[in-house]
Amino acid sequence: MPDGPAGPFELRIPPDPVHVATARLFVASLARTAGWEEGRVDDLRLAVSEAVSAAMVAYPDTEVVVSGTIESGILNLRVAPISEGALSDDRFDVESIVASLFDGARFDGDAIVIPSVG
C-alpha cells in the first residue's frame, strides 16, 4: 500500500445539492492518492454521496463537514452536518447501502462513520 498523503482533512460544503458531487470528488481524490483501487473508490463515492445527501435533507440550512484522517492508505471518514441532534429516521436506505459497502460502518449521533477502510 503506497504511503500517500498523511494527516487530517476537512471539507466544509454549503447545504446545496450541487455540492454532493464536490464531496464525492474530494474523497475520491483522497482515496486514489492513497492508492485505493478504482472499485473501492467507486464504493466510497457512493457511501459519501449517501451520507452527504442524508445530512442535507435532514438539515437543509446547515453546512456539511466531510472530515477525517488518512495515513498509510487507511481512511477514517466522518460526514456530519454542523448542527445539534441526530439525523432523521428516514435513513434506512442510507444505512443499508453504507453497511453493504463497508464492514463496520455505523451511525454515531449526527454522523455516519466508516472506520478504517483501505
Partner: peptide
Amino acid sequence: MVTRIGGKEVPDDLGSVYYG
C-alpha cells in the same frame, strides 16, 4: 467553502494542489 488538509486551509479555488 473552507477546506483544510493537515490543519491548514486550502485556498478556495479550482484545482488547488495541496499535500500532493
